[in-house]
Design a protein around this nucleic acid. Structure first.
Lengths: 348, 348
DNA sequence: TGTCAATATGTAATGGGTTACATCATCTTT
DNA sequence: AAAGATGATGTAACCCATTACATATTGACA
């Protein structure tokens, strides 16, 4: 590679026989600079193809205009939509977004977090991995005074803002919907209970059963790892019970899909014999031959709000770090996998 | 926010009564530093919780250890897999990855590209948007001597390396597969012919028809925009022809899915009456009730190789910018949507 | 005409780390 | 013991933009 011959403000200042400070000020629209000089500098900069060195600027100002996002995976529709939301909100403010994947491993999460802090990021958005139990790395990040915002999957750390879904309500709504479809023995495919979101969905499920006076059968709750395979296995396990369920509320769409595949291979009719509800409203739920009812988490909105929370923290330049919690409402998209009546694809 | 009280090498040097240069050298494992000093500095740095300021380092060295990736969307399985491949290859070399989306708009592509160059990125990976016709912005990037590597969707710019799929071969293979299944009237759902990849797939299709002496019917080639809807519309249009196709080779999985949905709604049997082949091997193709035959582009490998090409360019610090073209072989995953015989889910 | 205010610009320090070159102490070698 | 080699460390310039403070210029007013 050839050396980059970068044009600096010094090159401009030499050419115009003025000081670099004046050039800098002129380029930054400092009102102390005369209109004439400002124009001259602007023209010369353009002519010489001057590009501001953001590194130098960042070093001086302490702000890089970069934010980091740590997610388990970028190719889950939910996460890429949140990212999109954050991006849309922050781009107009001049921020850039660095995306990191933890692949559900704390080890990676810690590495990525440290690397981001090292790169002098202005803020971090994060959805913790399934394997994150200890909060030391996050507390360490806080001591560096970098604003941190959790979204969706949070973990209790004092002083950290979070934008999450009302997963309890979502669990309740999904279960209630199944009850209203006439289901009495509703199984639940849970995710990793270590994560608050799955715990809350489970508790919403329990609460709905309680409210409608349905019996809770612990054998009907199976922990999955949100994959198709674990959904299949869950059905295998459920159908070994004496009492077979007549509905499945899965805390994830992939497990719901696996469950449906297994039910079909057992020639069990959906929704007539068993209703299925998934979670996340992944695009495929809509495309399936048998579209799957699913809970939408309004991910793009979640991203936007997380970004707004961040912007507030940055703007409010106080010595107090604000801890803000935002809870979003879920939205159920009822589709064929659980609609026994006439209604199809109706959002409540 | 509180001020960050950063520990610098000067703080360490003061504490130890040595010069900052010595500290810097000690931390960088410079062999001129005595073992004793090196150890002392390392311990003190740890103790004082010293973090290297990568901005300062980047400013000095001219290298940020960040690379940018510009893709149309991150939530297409293909792109997120390429990103994963790039990441895996570059992370061990200390690079970080900044991901940008063009959303298929040149306007965004140009903005993202400029923003990346401004941030003093060490290299750029890019898959051009559908709407990219003009190469000015890319040539401009080249004048800054930032290594640029195209992957998948390239555009002809002298001096730019590219890692692509053999789309011609892929088009040929898909068509040949359909012919071998006994199909005679094969329709093609093309993507935007403006993009080389779709042009090549189309030409591979033409070539296969020619080789097997099948008639080419221009009415059987429909341009889609890679969405479900456009796949549905394409089938509507095709079934208005006098001669109905007995197979569809779609240059994208989403259009293939739309086509299948439309065929089903017309009670046309797949694969008995019509065989369907998609492209990209999106995960959903496998999960469908009727799994879809699809062409795999080995995206993760593509990412890895693109990263290797980049590393070579950076390492070979010569004044010549190497232009390297790598062409990968596609892999067909045959599934029910086109398997009339016994075979299901066989990769060739 | 001298003084003050207002405007425009320059000087120099700063941010934090790297590194060419200089210096000094110690050890070899003859 | 002088001269040269080797190793360890210090000095200061540099990367580039920003900005507090200093200075210079001009015009207004008493």
């Amino acid at each position: 590679m050839k050396q980059k011959e970068k044009v600096t403000i010094y090159d401009i200042s030499k050419k115009l026989n003025i000081s670099a400070a004046t050039v800098s000020r002129a380029l930054n629209q400092n009102p102390k600079i005369s209109e004439k000089t400002r124009k001259l500098v602007a023209e010369t900069a353009l002519e010489m193809n001057y590009k501001q060195n953001r590194l130098a600027q960042a070093l001086k100002s302490g702000r890089t205009n970069n934010v980091g996002i740590i997610v388990p995976y970028i190719n889950r529709s939910f996460f890429s939509s949140v990212i999109r939301g954050i991006e849309e909100e922050l781009t107009p403010h001049g921020y850039h977004v660095i995306i990191c994947q933890s692949h559900e491993e704390v080890k990676n999460e810690i590495e990525q977090l440290n690397a981001l802090l090292n790169t002098q990021i202005d803020g971090i958005f994060m959805s913790v991995s399934k394997t994150t139990k200890n909060t030391d790395h996050i507390k360490k990040a806080l001591t560096e005074n970098t604003p941190l915002v959790f979204f969706d999957r949070k973990i209790e750390v004092p002083g950290v803002s979070a934008v999450v879904l009302d997963d309890f309500k979502a669990g309740f709504m999904a279960t209630e919907h199944l009850i209203k479809e006439g289901c009495k023995k509703i199984a639940h495919l849970s995710g990793d209970i270590n994560l608050e979101i799955y715990k809350n969905r489970y508790e919403g499920y329990r609460d709905a059963l309680k409210k409608y006076k349905l019996e809770y059968n612990p054998l009907h709750v199976i922990q999955t790892n949100s994959t198709i395979e674990s959904g299949q296995q869950a059905v295998e396990q459920l159908w070994e019970c004496d009492e077979k369920p007549d509905a499945i509320f899965s805390a994830g769409d992939y497990a719901a899909l696996g469950a449906i595949q297994e039910l079909k291979s057992r020639h069990i009719k959906i929704p007539e014999e068993v209703c299925v509800v998934g979670f996340s409203n992944e695009p495929f739920t809509k495309y399936m031959e048998l579209p799957i009812t699913s809970m939408d988490q309004t991910p793009q909105l979640m991203g936007k709000i997380a970004a707004q929370v961040f912007l507030e923290q940055v703007k409010g330049n106080q010595a107090v770090s604000i801890e803000k919690k935002v809870v979003l409402s879920p939205e159920l998209f009822v589709r064929s996998s659980s609609a026994r009546g006439v209604l199809k694809e109706i959002s409540t």
